[in-house]
Amino acid sequence: MRSLIDIIDLTVEEIDELIATANDIIANPDKYAEKCKRKKLATLFFEPSTRTRLSFESAMLELGGSVIGFSGANNSSAAKGESVSDTVRTVGCYADIIAMRHPKEGAPMIASMRSPVPIINAGDGGHNHPTQTLADLLTIHREKGRFDHLTVGLCGDLKFGRTVHSLIHALSRYEGVQFVMISPDELKVPEYIIQELEKEGIPYTETRSLEEAMPTLDILYMTRVQQERFFNEADYIRLKDSYILTPDKLETAKSSLSILHPLPRVNEISVAVDNDPRACYFKQVSNGKYIRMALILKLLEVE
């Protein structure tokens, strides 16, 4: 029985396989409409996240399965003090697979050690969010047709942005990928990730200027500066508007650039950019559902 806790749990071949399945689902949705008939997905969201939860639920419904679950720790047994281990053992008696979001880092790993059914990490605090990374990878693959030899710009909150950390891990495994980290000093990529890149000899540059980095990029991955990751409101207000993507900043960008964002956005991408053919962030949402369908099939070992 497999769970997905961290994107690096998947080999490059397995990611290729998921992407191939997702592409096949997009091309032939009817073929998959009853693949998970009589199977149940439980969405255990100890921290609210409407969009990720709806993506998982839509994925299971489109596979012909059904969905149970809760959203917000106040509506769950956690409010009564139940441990994560006990919650998943209980829910594992009802559901065939569990997607879990939890504010504490490592909670889905504990869950996977105790659960009788596969666990999918749907985000654990500021730590991992592997299915967002799979959605990002599917989008990059559908836009570029490859993962290797890409210059990937990561912009905004690179310190607390778990999607950024997972994407770096995932793309680091492909040849010729280089990263351009664009952030204020306060929100730079954590030191341990930099050390890993240096250890593996993967090229990266750090800059505070989005304009300076723009002409070199094949992918621009924008992120939200999230208030809930700050201890101090004054720091949040000072930094949240630092990196806003507007049509004029895109003037020096390649025509083949792909702009990604894990969403929701606040104001870091101007609405005026939405009609630019390079904007891929709503395609990314749609891809998120398809790759989650592929993942559910894989973990449930449905042929």
Binding site: A107, D124, G126
Partner: peptide, 13 residues
Amino acid sequence: KNPRCITSVEQEI
């Protein structure tokens, strides 16, 4: 020592 780690709240792990 990470206050955001699950070990800070989950008993007996």
